[in-house]
């Protein structure tokens, strides 16, 4: 039963993507030696609102925007740092993402085929910045929709924070959405649901249950994301390259309104009460 030596080497050399900071994640996706950061910490473009509320800011406001090449083509990667304020979207953080997407669109209009990638590790809007955060999330949505006819917008949710709130809509708008098994994707986070609807509705501490409902594997099995990749930096970088090589999807998920309405109608709330039941109903093709 002892694992073969090659297996041990593989286990030892495995490079977890989840382990990496947002800055390291953006580096891991760009071709070696091409990474350069825009509006980095030394530009000190931090939130003007947090200090007024007695909260220590981070000099990049929790978003890393990096330019470089993917597969030899110009690219921009915007990565959210989930360790800072739960990856929440404040005015500066969100505007950095929206501006990056907008500049990528302008590149395309000038004939520069910039490839956009979003790392969506976020609880959603930053409550301390309220309406400004919501407004900028709407700008991100608009920027994705404006950019995606030019080039696939690739989103990645790696974990462990997950992607929630208004930013889950940003994830859903992406042309190609990649998740790991550790990712979670949903509108309201489990803790919010438990708080609002009670523990009988959802026990947020039951991790097996939570992942069976909104975890990466489940979301892939019911067709709400495009690709499930294991937590490995090289595998994820390869998945990103492959997504750009594959080009535009046949249609966007956000345009499949009749299909999703039909899927919703098919649900009997009395019967479909857990993850496996939804998989049985919505699962595309044969189950593994």
């Amino acid at each position: 039963m002892t694992a073969a030596v090659t297996d041990l080497d593989r286990l030892l050399s495995r490079k977890s993507f989840i382990e990496l900071s947002a800055r390291e994640r953006t580096k891991a996706l760009l071709d070696a030696g091409t990474w350069r950061e825009l509006l980095g910490p030394f530009d000190r473009l931090h939130s003007p609102w947090l200090e007024m509320q007695d909260i220590v800011p981070q000099e990049d406001d929790g978003v890393v925007v990096a330019r470089g090449l993917i597969d030899g083509q110009p690219a921009v990667v915007a990565g959210i740092e989930s360790a800072f304020q739960g990856g929440s979207m404040g005015e500066i953080a969100g505007m950095k993402i929206a501006a990056a997407l907008d500049l990528a669109r302008q590149d395309h209009e000038r004939g520069i085929p910039t490839r956009p990638v979003l790392l969506l590790e976020t609880g959603g809007v930053r409550l301390q910045e309220a309406n400004l955060g919501l407004a900028v999330i709407a700008e991100i949505h608009a920027a994705i929709i404006a950019l995606r006819p030019h080039v696939p917008v690739v989103g990645i949710i790696a974990g462990l924070v997950g992607c929630f709130g208004g930013m889950s809509l940003a994830a859903a708008l992406c042309s190609h959405l990649i998740v790991t098994p550790q990712a979670r994707l949903g509108m309201n986070g489990p803790e919010v649901i438990e708080q609002e609807a009670g523990i009988a509705e959802l026990d947020a501490s039951d991790k097996r249950l939570i992942w069976s409902l909104i975890g990466g594997e489940q979301r892939a099995a019911v067709g709400l994301v495009d690709q499930l990749v294991e937590d490995d930096a090289d595998a994820i970088a390869e998945a990103v390259r492959a997504a750009f090589r594959a080009g535009q999807p046949d249609s966007y998920r956000s345009q499949q309104i009749p299909q999703f309405l039909a899927r919703l109608v098919a649900i009997d709330p009395a019967l479909v009460t857990d993850g496996p039941a939804l998989r049985a109903l919505w699962g595309k093709g044969e189950q593994a």
Partner: peptide, 17 residues
């Protein structure tokens, strides 16, 4: 769990997948 070849089955509270 991967090191154990799947033999180690962590309790639910430690699972993040």
């Amino acid at each position: 769990s991967a090191w154990s070849g799947g033999l180690y089955q962590p309790p639910a509270r430690f699972r993040t997948w």
